[in-house]
């Protein structure tokens, strides 16, 4: 099986700490894959190695193979800066740039890199804000600070910012953990829509969320991949005892 992103024997070490252990799995294109597991199980670490965010941590070492479209992500010829445009990321807490307006946040990925055509920028802002269903709420105050938005709006803005650079894969690291239930619901609906265009990998500790939004689910425990497969199957007839214990709430 060839997915959009393929892991082969992938491990992450922080110094002597073996945080992700020999994980092999596929992430299918145009689908939502959820990674679940108790906190500290390595799921966020795994996610962050998929767009080379660990490059900034000197003690972090990624080994094994990560293939994106069949190319090794950690190959010498790959520019980590370029790859992050192809593989976008949405973070746990909404993190819009505080010194920028709503408008500038959406086109931040471009603006920080080059001067851009005003008309093109306007287009991008409108399209992306519409895609995240934020346009109607903010179209009259695009120049005001992104910090004036509510938490849920900020997170949708961050998603707009991510899709504005036209990634192929979007990584989401517990994107709803700082949000209230209504804002969470909106993000979940958005994820459902986005998968038509993007490959989405979402880390969550909320099992209901995984069940609601994902097509397939991977369960991790103590740095190891315990089980992965179709979400329906994982949540109804898991093969491993550990998975069953976790999803029925017996631990974690």
């Amino acid at each position: 099986m060839n997915g959009k992103v393929t892991l082969e024997n992938m491990s992450v070490h922080f110094g002597n700490n073996h945080a992700v252990k020999n994980v092999s799995m596929d992430f299918a294109a145009h689908s939502v894959t959820a990674i679940i597991g108790p906190s500290g199980c390595g799921k966020s670490t795994l996610l962050r190695s998929l767009n080379r965010m660990h490059d900034l941590v000197p003690s972090a070492k990624v080994s094994g193979t990560i293939l994106v479209d069949g190319k090794n992500l950690y190959d010498r010829s790959i520019d980590p800066v370029a790859i992050r445009r192809k593989i976008g990321m949405v973070f746990q807490k909404p993190n819009p740039f505080p010194a920028m307006s709503i408008y500038d946040n959406v086109v931040a990925g471009y603006k920080l890199n080059s001067r851009m055509n005003r008309a093109v920028a306007d287009e991008i802002v409108e399209t992306c804000l519409k895609r995240v269903a934020l346009w109607d709420e903010v179209k009259d105050r695009l120049k005001s600070s992104a910090m004036d938005l509510s938490g849920g709006q900020q997170q949708r803005l961050c998603i707009a910012r991510t899709i504005a650079v036209q990634p192929e894969v979007i990584l989401m690291d517990e994107p709803c953990s700082a949000l209230d239930p209504i804002a969470t619901l909106k993000i979940e609906e958005l994820i459902e829509e986005l998968k038509e265009r993007f490959t989405i990998i979402i880390v969550t500790h909320n099992m209901q969320q995984a069940a609601r939004v994902s097509d397939s689910t991977a369960f991790m425990y103590m740095g190891e991949l315990v089980e992965n497969g179709a979400t329906k199957k994982i949540f109804t007839t898991p093969e491993k005892k550990q998975t069953e214990d976790y999803i029925t709430g017996r631990f974690g």
């Binding site: 800066v81 990321m89 973070f91 993190n95 931040a108 990925g109 910012r161």
Partner: peptide, 18 residues
């Protein structure tokens, strides 16, 4: 906050511009 640095890098902005 480090999250801003991450947000920018995740958009594919080089470190020096970030």
């Amino acid at each position: 906050p480090g999250t801003l640095r991450e947000a920018s890098l995740a958009l594919g902005v080089p470190l020096w511009r970030t």
